[in-house]
């Protein structure tokens, strides 16, 4: 391995420190037996036990997971269809307006998006709860999915779809049997992106959640305002664990796919 120059070494250290030091501190203190978060009093896993017995926390976690699953799935379907229409639909009436509206949530501040959704739900008389959070999260996740899928579709060879039609597919079959399998990686990353964004959202959820349905970020935020408890540290450590496992798995899968492809190509050229 190449030896790093002192300059590179320094920037690497600082980079990693800025990124990971806060998290490391958090994980370490989640195993602190002391009730005072910042005073170390020995190793213990008792806060994890406390956490799992905390029903309000568990409820919030369950709400969050359901919201993330539902909204990212819904957003993936809608976002993929929207991207398909924008790329393949030609110059239909109102195309510019549609693409502008679709991408608006990307640039709109969360506060404004949350507020306008709140006003909408009140106007149509929809009670705030699980459903409104799902709808709100779908709105912005859909924009992200559309961006990811659009960039894949633009690079997609249109004659593949025409070949499918030529060989007897209806338009829908051509999409299902040819387009979708080929753009699947983009669709899956769109879903993952939507899932993560939903897990992570505090602002929009605050506007659209009701008393019966609180998400984890809201719960954590309000708990922390009363003082950081070791329990929150434990919860955060678990979340860090889940996200890390997810990210590492995803990168391993894509790395293996690339390696396989390269091996295949080498085998093909004698």
């Amino acid at each position: 391995m190449r030896k790093l120059s002192w300059f590179n070494l320094t920037s690497l250290t600082f980079g990693f420190a800025f990124l990971y030091l806060p998290m490391i501190v958090l994980v370490v203190y989640s195993f602190n037996s002391n009730k005072l978060v910042t005073v170390w009093a020995g190793f213990s896993t008792k806060w994890y036990g406390e956490l799992f017995r905390n029903e309000a926390m568990m409820d919030a976690a369950w709400v969050t997971i359901r919201v993330a699953l539902a909204s990212s799935t819904l957003a993936t379907v809608l976002g993929t269809l929207a991207a398909y229409v924008l790329v393949r639909g030609g110059r239909f009436h109102g195309r510019t307006l549609f693409s502008g509206m679709l991408y608006a949530p990307l640039v709109m501040p969360d506060v404004i998006l949350g507020l306008s959704l709140l006003l909408l739900f009140i106007a149509i008389g929809l009670d705030r709860g699980l459903l409104t959070i799902i709808l709100a999260h779908t709105t912005f996740s859909m924009a992200y999915v559309a961006v990811v899928v659009t960039s894949r579709l633009v690079a997609f060879d249109r004659s593949l779809e025409e070949a499918a039609l030529d060989l007897g597919c209806t338009r829908f079959e051509a999409f299902r049997l040819v387009t979708l399998p080929i753009i699947a990686p983009a669709v899956i990353s769109g879903w993952l992106l939507g899932f993560t964004l939903s897990l992570d959202d505090l602002v929009i959820a605050s506007f659209t959640s009701g008393p019966s349905s609180t998400t984890l970020p809201i719960k954590i935020f309000s708990a922390v305002r009363l003082g950081v408890s070791p329990e929150i540290n434990a919860l955060s450590a678990i979340l860090i664990g889940i996200v890390s496992v997810g990210v590492i798995t995803a990168s391993l899968i894509s790395k293996r796919a690339i390696a396989k492809r390269i091996a295949d190509e080498n085998r093909a050229t004698p």
């Binding site: 004659s159 593949l160 070949a163 499918a164 030529d166 080929i182």
Partner: peptide, 13 residues
């Protein structure tokens, strides 16, 4: 009618 495309348009998957 079937067509052989200029780019072949084989399904990569």
């Amino acid at each position: 009618v079937n067509m052989m495309f200029q780019s072949y348009a084989l399904f990569p998957h």
